[in-house]
Write a protein that binds this DNA or RNA. Structure first.
Length: 509
DNA sequence: AAATGCGGGGTAG
DNA sequence: CTACCCCGCATTT
């Protein structure tokens, strides 16, 4: 095995980040790309699991982390074949919303988690909005140059490397744990003796999910009449932002508790009320509060405002749920970002795209937009803060503008499964020693890591980071450059969305 | 029934 | 070639 250089990966990376006080994630401190033939070998510090990653971030989790092992994500990610058995690629399905973008009395929105299974998703989309009865619509994710945001997972020795590319341009769906919790709750309910009776009641009053006076009146959501997966209601705030302030995942696995328990995941600690409180706090969302990723575009209110139903068009195809770019469906050509009125997308699209490209592997994008692109300069957050409100017609132009600076993902070594040579930059590495499909570098590289890729990260990440930084308390723009390598902070991403699983009494099931 | 992964195939730039 | 997407199949949950 040829190790190319530094043994201690840490050393090779920027040292400024080595300090423990650095606010960046450990993964972001290191310079690596999921596609690198060799990843840092001697990782001694791992990041805490991040449920809601957004933007161009990288994390290195412990191989012991259950969530990482399951390749979990709060976003609805589905497996995508990248023909690379060493790297698991997953792309975002977006979020299912009410075709009319109806707003509940409490101002919340319905934001369902798209079913991962194509078949299930089709079914899901045939259901109607529990609140207004209009058809549900799948908002595809197009945060990565018009394509869905992608997440990459790679097991390397004892570490699980995670890399995300793209900035979600849609609200967060109900998290997996929440969905599960809700389902189980429903199940319990269904089995309960009183179920039938209740069901009847619910049905007759389907319309009043949110009774203002109820116990949860302070919260946002309603009960769903349709079934567990029917929907989750979320406050708009859910969207971007705030989450990060939520200190939830500090421990290595805290997250898992959420999953395992019936409790709403992620909110280990708070009671419904509390959540609510948090929620509200963040709602107004300060322009600079998001984790980095997304932006502010959606401010709470904004999202709502923007998303007006256009024609109420019935849900478009169901199954196409996925494929945006192909453009075929959903109108979604990248540009058309939804004609559905979901302007949000459009607005950010431009920059996002720029980002995305840059994000992947590149350096700063030269594209026009890049220069001014929010992601590229810390001004972004503040600039677009309320953008939601603003006009911003976004150039919904797709990828065109960007130049391909980066290669997106899956690129690299494509032959992982077969012993062969990995091409890296200009060099070829013989990987035969490395097990074919096995842990690629693990064996061979025991200690080597070629620090090659730098270009991309720098650019991309930087921007992303800078972006993230905004959300950090003291950090200033100036710092961005310095810290750009840092990723989102663990404690940040946390969904603040509140959902009341138990309120979903619905019937089905 | 769904979620997950895998891998063959096809398409577009 | 690269980067995506679609599909079916098998395995878990």
């Amino acid at each position: 095995m040829r190790r190319k250089l530094m043994r201690c990966y840490c050393r090779s990376t920027a040292d400024p980040f080595e300090d423990s006080d650095c606010v960046c994630s450990f993964g972001m401190k290191l310079t690596w790309d999921i596609n690198d033939p060799k990843l840092p070998q001697d990782v001694k510090q791992y990041d805490t699991f991040q449920e809601w990653t957004d933007g161009y971030v990288r994390f290195i989790y412990s191989g012991e982390d259950k969530n990482a092992q399951r390749h979990l994500s709060g976003w609805a990610m589905r497996n995508t074949n990248n023909h690379n058995c060493q790297i698991l690629k997953k792309s975002c399905l977006g979020v299912v919303v009410c075709g009319r973008n109806c707003t509940l009395t409490d101002g919340s929105k319905i934001q369902l988690r798209p079913a991962i299974c194509d078949k299930a998703r089709q079914k899901q989309q045939k259901k109607l909005c529990p609140s207004c009865n209009s058809s549900l619509e799948l908002l595809p994710c197009r945060g990565h140059s018009g394509y869905p945001v992608t997440n990459f997972w790679r097991l390397e020795g004892k570490a699980i490397f995670f890399q995300a590319k793209g900035v979600h341009d849609h609200p967060r769906p109900e998290s997996k744990s929440e969905t599960e919790a809700r389902r189980s709750a429903v199940k319990r309910r269904m089995s309960s003796p009183h179920f039938s009776q209740k069901k009847r009641l619910l049905e007759s009053e389907a319309a009043r999910y949110h009774d203002p006076g109820g116990p949860f009146s302070g919260l946002h959501h309603l009960s769903c009449v349709d079934g567990p997966d029917r929907f989750s209601i979320i406050t708009e705030s859910n969207f971007p932002l705030q989450a990060q302030h939520y200190p939830s995942f500090q421990n290595p696995d805290p997250y898992k508790y959420g999953y395992d328990s019936g409790a709403v995941a992620g909110e280990p600690v708070s009671s419904p009320l509390q959540k609510s409180a948090n929620h509200r706090l963040y709602v107004p969302r300060p322009p600079c509060g998001y984790d980095f990723a997304v932006p502010s575009y959606l401010g709470s209110g904004s999202y709502a405002a923007l998303y007006k139903d256009p024609s109420g068009s019935p849900t478009p195809d169901s199954d196409s749920s996925m494929g945006p770019p192909g453009g075929s469906q959903h109108g979604a050509s990248p540009l058309s970002a939804h004609d559905r009125g979901y302007d949000t997308n459009g607005k950010h699209q431009g920059w996002k795209q720029a980002l995305s490209k840059a994000g992947d592997r590149g350096e700063y994008a030269q594209s026009p937009s890049s220069s001014s692109h929010p992601f590229y300069n810390s001004e972004y957050l503040c600039r677009y803060p309320g953008s939601s409100t603003g006009p911003a017609p976004a150039p919904a132009v797709p990828p065109p503008a960007l130049q391909t600076i980066i290669t997106t993902t899956t690129k690299v070594s494509y032959q992982p499964c077969k012993p062969a040579m990995l091409k890296y930059g200009d060099n070829l590495y013989d990987v035969k020693n490395v097990a074919g499909c096995g842990p690629l570098l693990e064996a061979g590289a025991s200690s080597a890591y070629s620090d090659l890729k730098a270009p991309e990260d720098s650019g991309v990440i930087k921007s992303a980071l800078a972006y993230q930084q905004e959300s950090l308390p003291k950090t200033e723009r100036a710092d961005s450059l310095e810290t750009y390598r840092c990723g989102s902070y663990p404690s940040y991403n946390y969904p603040e969305r509140i959902v009341h699983p138990f309120k979903y009494d619905s019937n089905e099931y």
